[in-house]
Write a protein that binds this DNA or RNA. Structure first.
Lengths: 155, 155
DNA sequence: CGATCTGACTTGTTATTATGAAGTTAGCCT
DNA sequence: AGGCTAACTTCATAATAACAAGTCAGATCG
């Protein structure tokens, strides 16, 4: 049980959650993936309060997941919008994995509320755990955890 | 931009986050995947406070992600431990996806602190987004979102 | 047999976050 | 000039989390 000897705070899961683990953050990003980019749309669609949305957007920009841009419709005044950066787009597997888990374990009797399909072939999309040699891990027990180069011992 | 017409609360990502989106919850599960199952070990390793840990464990059990068991070492008194259920184990892709993102975007100069490898072949493990026909989605733009059978319109 | 230890929690009390309602500001439109 | 609107602030209140201490029951020790 060597895992206990390593510092829990120096773990990529922990570090990821420090960035995206707060309430509303992932939902803002989910909407950003779906083309919702403006303050008022996000607020109305998510049902988040103004101050929290403003603060979340600020930290998402500071952390480099979103970038602000100015958006001008002709004949209307310029508005601000928030676009996903590559760093933000890299969270796609996280969102798909959450979607898949919710579909399986939190769907109502009617089935999943949202379907994500492959644009090219129309088949449903899912998050799979695979090794780089191409084997799929069907159970967590097929994975093995070991300290990496950046591991730190616990205090 | 049809997405805005659908109820944000009736989305599997939202529902998943309602279960596992609170602070410490995923970290408790991460440790459970790594064999940490007892109250005091979790508290000491995670650095979470007693009341929060007790409350999180209670709701994780209530939600069916962990199940309590009694564990007796010979010659010692019985202790309680918490084991992952199948529902909990199904979160593996979420954790791997978070690990991968953190490895890429939050690692220090030494590289990732934890490595997960395939037990059989020793190769590193990653979360991939694929369609069931076996094509890998290299960009979120290859995925297409549409309302599913359980979709609900917004108020 | 009573005292102490230990693991697994509660029960306070305080600090941090989130919510809700009401401003504020700046650009455009009439 | 006056009003509208998007994108925020500010301020008061409610919910969560953290920290410190206390409880309780089953060992084990003397």
């Amino acid at each position: 049980m060597e895992w206990l000897e390593y510092d829990s705070a120096a773990c990529s899961i922990r570090r990821s959650l420090d960035v995206i683990g707060r309430k509303w953050t992932l939902l803002i990003l989910r909407d950003a993936f779906n083309g919702v980019r403006r303050f008022d749309q996000l607020r109305d669609h998510l049902g988040v309060s103004d101050p929290v949305l403003a603060e979340r957007l600020r930290t998402l920009v500071a952390d480099g997941l979103l970038e602000p841009a100015t958006y001008s419709e002709p004949g209307r005044r310029a508005r601000r919008e928030y676009r996903l950066t590559d760093k933000g787009r890299d969270l796609y597997p996280v969102l798909i994995a959450l979607l898949q888990w919710g579909d399986k374990h939190c769907s109502g009797p009617d089935g999943p509320p949202v379907r994500v399909t492959h644009r090219d072939c129309g088949e449903p999309v899912e998050a799979k755990v695979m090794c780089v040699a191409g084997h799929e891990l069907t159970s967590p027990s097929e994975g093995q955890t070991a300290p990496g180069p950046g591991a730190e011992a616990r205090a």
